[in-house]
């Protein structure tokens, strides 16, 4: 008797944890969205997916936060598989664990969103990736800086680089592509300091860059995201320097980033479409379950070489088009 009460309590607790938003219908699809963590961007992405599900209707969707723990991602996938769900949408913590995720998913359809597994050969008609091509995000920054300095007639450019968390694929690609595009634009680039690894965090970036601002020569500040770019802006204001005196560039077009472009403190940023990614991921899952093209019902298109990758485009944001991106 005691035992069964305990079992019931466990069931009740897990029902709460894996609680569902919509009442169940017989032909519902059941899905779990597993987020690596919940920062501003990823929360918006999550909402993009759940909103799209609500709009389509007939989809039971629950979301989990793995708190940046790759092991938790796997646990959530296994739980969804055990519950007999139809699909999982996974925002990977560790890009190397893609194969393990697919294995854990068993018969479920798998959509990776925002963070691509490093081994793309695991993608197939039941496993797709929806995200934005990070090589283009840094590329937009690089092109902007190349144009900026070419217009000034300056070819030797010293830069300070604020990097996100090392080991994440998008950190590497953002950094690689911005530097490559600056070189391709005819600039002779040199690093003014060792790369600062500020883990995508505003306060960390502000602290790390502060000692360099008045002691090093630099022509521009490149940040892998807006939060770190804004940290650099604050550090410059702290040091009584004008952030508009040199170009500071970010990526993400967060609400704060947009505001900074309007204020003139940030030179440009790159809009990554979180709602589009969330919606695209959900549509890909539904389309797979219904045996349709992955991109049906969206304006996105698949990669030219790998048909199992769906690209949600990046868009550069400057002072002259910033109004389009205000929320």
């Amino acid at each position: 008797m005691k035992m069964s009460k305990r079992v019931l309590a466990c069931l009740a607790a897990s029902a709460m944890v894996f609680g569902v938003a919509a009442p169940a219908l017989a032909d519902d699809y059941k899905m779990t969205v597993i987020m690596s963590s919940r920062d501003e961007f990823l929360s918006t992405l999550e909402k993009g997916a759940t909103d799209a599900a609500a709009e389509i209707g007939g989809i039971e969707i629950s979301t989990q936060d793995a708190n940046n723990d790759p092991a938790k991602v796997l646990q959530f996938i296994e739980a969804a598989a055990n519950a007999g769900e139809d699909a999982v949408i996974i925002n990977l913590v560790d890009a190397e664990t893609g194969a393990e995720c697919v294995e854990a998913a068993g018969d479920m359809k798998v959509v990776f969103v925002n963070r691509c597994p490093s081994d793309t050969s695991i993608l197939n008609e039941n496993v797709v990736y929806v995200g934005s091509n990070e090589m283009t995000s840094g590329g937009f920054q690089g092109d902007f800086l190349a144009d900026y300095f070419n217009e000034k007639g300056q070819t030797d450019v010293k830069y300070i680089l604020l990097q996100g968390t090392l080991g994440l694929v998008h950190t590497t690609q953002r950094t690689e592509s911005v530097l490559q595009h600056m070189k391709d634009g005819g600039l002779n680039i040199e690093e003014a300091a060792a790369p600062l690894v500020a883990d995508y965090d505003r306060a960390t970036a502000q602290e790390m860059i502060a000692p360099l601002l008045t002691t090093t020569e630099y022509d521009c500040i490149i940040a892998n995201n807006d939060a770190m770019a804004l940290g650099a802006v604050e550090a410059m204001l702290d040091a009584d320097l004008d952030p508009a005196s040199i170009p500071i560039v970010g990526i993400d077009a967060t609400a704060d980033g947009i505001q900074a472009i309007k204020d003139g403190t940030l030179a440009m940023t790159v809009f990554q479409d979180p709602v589009g990614q969330g919606m695209g991921a959900l549509m890909a899952a539904v389309n797979m379950l219904e045996g349709k093209e992955f991109t049906e019902g969206t304006s996105f298109s698949a990669d030219e070489e790998n048909p199992y990758i769906v690209w949600v485009p990046f868009e550069p944001v400057y002072p002259d088009n910033v109004a389009d991106y205000e929320k």
Binding site: R38, D39, D201, R202, A203, Q206, L230, E234, D238, D256
Partner: peptide, 16 residues
């Protein structure tokens, strides 16, 4: 002090 200095409070990373 920290929110004053950075001009922003971020639930996931402030004070981490």
């Amino acid at each position: 002090l920290l929110t004053g200095k950075t001009g922003s409070a971020t639930p996931a990373s402030t004070g981490l």
